Simulated assay, not measured.
Amino acid sequence: MASWGDLAAYVRDTYDVISEEDDEIRILFNFEQFDEDDERTQVVILVREVLDKLHEWVQIASPIGLAADVDLHAFLVEVGNSSIACGAAIMGDHVVLRHSLPLQDLDIHEFTDPLALLAGTADQLEEQFFGGDNY
């Protein structure tokens, strides 16, 4: 990958895009592509970020529930114990998992592997802490 435009084109060809703006693409990550018996999905938001007005990055984020509806201490302990490729944050009213990658010289597997890990972890934590599949 060399730019946001290159990544956006790849994402449009590979994933189920549910909305798109200039610097943001929302996809519905479908776990069925990996396991035909798994009908769960996870909303994942890809956002172009520019560091120091110079370097393009992509932020991968997935909302999993409302911050007001979870024991944040227990949630963060679980993220610390089970997460490899993401961290937790509160964005607006939502708890999200997110990960960021520089776009310059990005190999596609450096994007797809963290994306799949983040979506899977978000889906698991959403079920565990929020009791459903709402995002």
Rank of each mutant, 00 (worst) to 15 (best):
Gln104Glu: 12
Asp23Pro: 00
Val77His: 01
Ala85Met: 15
Pro114Tyr: 05
Gly5Leu: 13
Ala122Asp: 06
His55Val: 12
Leu103His: 03
Ala9Pro: 00
Leu28Gly: 05
Glu32Asn: 14
His99Val: 00
Phe111Arg: 04
Gly80Tyr: 02
His109Ser: 10
Thr112Ser: 15
Pro102Asn: 01
Ala85Tyr: 11
Gln33Thr: 14
Gln128Met: 12
Gly132Cys: 10
Tyr10Cys: 01
Lys53Arg: 10
Asn30Arg: 15
Asn81His: 11
Phe129Leu: 07
Glu56Met: 06
Ile64Ser: 02
Ile27Pro: 02
Ala2Thr: 14
Asp123Thr: 06
Asp71Gly: 07
Pro63Cys: 09
Thr121Trp: 00
Met91Tyr: 11
Phe31Asp: 07
Arg26Thr: 09
Gln128His: 09
Leu115Ala: 07
Ser82Asp: 11
Asp123Leu: 02
Leu76Phe: 10
Asp16Ala: 14
Ile108Gly: 02
Ile84Asn: 01
Ser3Cys: 10
Val44Ala: 08
Ala74Arg: 14
Ala68Gly: 01
Asp37Cys: 01
Val50Glu: 13
Glu24Asp: 09
His55Tyr: 13
Asp37His: 12
Ile18Lys: 13
Gly65Pro: 08
Ala85Glu: 09
Ser3Tyr: 09
Ile25His: 05
Val96Trp: 03
Ile108Phe: 03
Ala68Trp: 00
Glu56Val: 05
Leu117His: 09
Leu103Glu: 04
Val43Thr: 13
Thr14Asn: 14
Thr14Tyr: 08
Asp123His: 04
Ile27Glu: 03
Phe29Lys: 03
Val79Glu: 06
Phe29Ile: 06
Gln42Asp: 03
Trp4Ile: 11
His73Ala: 14
Thr121Phe: 00
Ala61Thr: 06
Asp93Thr: 07
Leu54Tyr: 01
Leu54His: 02
Val95Arg: 02
Ile25Gln: 04
